[in-house]
């Protein structure tokens, strides 16, 4: 990892949510560097370092992935499934950050090995609180796995 800066990959197609979550992270005083991709295919490209994302120093492997469910081109569930099948990526913590509270979505995500499932709150203060907890837990307290081989 370059320096001590942790990278969060935020996969989100709604520009409003991208802005709000960036602001909430800022208000939560997170030191993480946020990389944003806006659809499932780009997420796969970023993580595999292909196409526009071949420069690893510019697009580092993230320490945490925030994944929306409903995405253009490839759904969050498909991206999650793909990540868990990649030897070099499968241990990266993935947190679903979505609007859906449907049990079917929640259960499917856990079945595929998601690390946490969060529903975006409508109240902005609650969102700030959530980002604060997320940052301190996943990027602070949590022990990170080494990159898996095979």
């Amino acid at each position: 990892m370059p320096g001590n800066v942790r990278t969060i990959l935020h996969v989100e197609d709604d520009p409003n949510d991208v802005l709000l979550i960036a602001r909430a992270l800022r208000k939560a005083e997170s030191s993480a560097q946020v990389q944003v991709v806006t659809d499932g295919e780009q997420a796969v490209n970023y993580l595999s370092g292909t196409n526009a994302f071949s420069q690893r120093d510019q697009f580092p492997v993230p320490s945490l992935i925030l994944l929306d469910l409903k995405l253009p081109r490839k759904s969050g569930i498909e991206v999650l499934e793909w990540i868990r099948a990649q030897p070099g990526l499968k241990r990266i913590p993935v947190v679903m950050l979505t609007s859906s509270k449907q049990p079917i979505d929640i259960n499917r995500a856990y079945d595929l090995g998601v690390n946490a499932y969060l529903v975006k709150p409508v109240n902005f203060d609650a969102l700030v609180q959530m980002m604060k907890t997320l940052d301190s837990f996943w990027l602070g307290m949590n022990e990170h796995p080494s990159t898996a081989r095979e």
């Binding site: 709604d14 409003n16 949510d17 802005l19 709000l20 602001r23 469910l69 409903k70 979505t98 609007s99 859906s100 509270k101 449907q102 975006k120 709150p121 409508v122 109240n123 902005f124 203060d125 969102l127």
Partner: peptide, 22 residues
């Protein structure tokens, strides 16, 4: 329909709330 209410209708609400707050 419920899924759409749950997911799509809440996103603009979040924006309204978040940006009014900002």
């Amino acid at each position: 329909f419920s899924y759409s209410i749950s997911h799509d209708l809440r996103a603009p609400l979040r924006s309204m709330q978040g940006f009014a707050d900002a």
